[in-house]
Design a protein around this nucleic acid. Sequence first.
DNA 1: CTTGACCTTGACGTTGATGTCAAGGTCTAT
DNA 2: ATAGACCTTGACATCAACGTCAAGGTCAAG
Lengths: 126, 126
Amino acid sequence: MRIGELARRAGVSTRALRYYEQQGLITARRSANGYREYGEADLRLVSEIRSLLAVGFTLDDARPFVACLRAGHDSGGSCPDSVAVYQRKLAEIDDEIRTLLTRRAEVAAQLTTVCPGCVLRKAGES
Amino acid sequence: MRIGELARRAGVSTRALRYYEQQGLITARRSANGYREYGEADLRLVSEIRSLLAVGFTLDDARPFVACLRAGHDSGGSCPDSVAVYQRKLAEIDDEIRTLLTRRAEVAAQLTTVCPGCVLRKAGES
DNA sequence: CTTGACCTTGACGTTGATGTCAAGGTCTAT
DNA sequence: ATAGACCTTGACATCAACGTCAAGGTCAAG
């Protein structure tokens, strides 16, 4: 399939696909006229990339996952490098959550001093 | 005082101060040679801006607070517009926290499937 | 008079993942 | 042969809050 079809099927723009290629995440055969040609495996790669981006991973983070899939594994996460990224990301997310909880408390405190009773419930609490 | 002194006392760069001025957050008298001249009130404004930025506010968010101080209030947050920003920010922070908690759970779930026992404790839990 | 610490405006660089033109080649159908 | 749907590479635009040069003016001290 050509880039337009892959884009439609993967739910991304052609621009994004070319960008992924430029970043070395995906590759494409070229047909005689210079058009990019993709197979089903590429759809799988792009889907993996998208789901990782969706949970806050960067394209760089996605590299090991793509490599893992290309290496024949049925899951992009089942390789040591991918697991390492998972763990690093988890730590990063935890850091961000802690930072946000701190900020939330600070802002709520400020708001309370000028408007007691204005603060609602804390995030995550029902 | 001139821009360098204000920068040192406020703990910001002169570039930042010029940027705040360009964004209409602070203003400066000019002495005969064209140098910016600031007073103590400006230090107060810059401090307010910095503390707001520190908790994740944008410069745009800081506008009502600066206006509030300029209007003579002793607290930048004690004006209706500021309170509104506080509440909006609180809601934004809560949204982000919820998003991150969801992501954290998704990533942890993925990691668990390929590496049971790899996931540590959840953020915020001890 | 000259160093050096200050100040001025202007303008490009940073970061990530694209969006959006520009200018043009390819291919199918009518 | 011509419309129009597809493809190509290249390159600038976006968002925020500055960092960092460039090129030059100002001023006090030695």
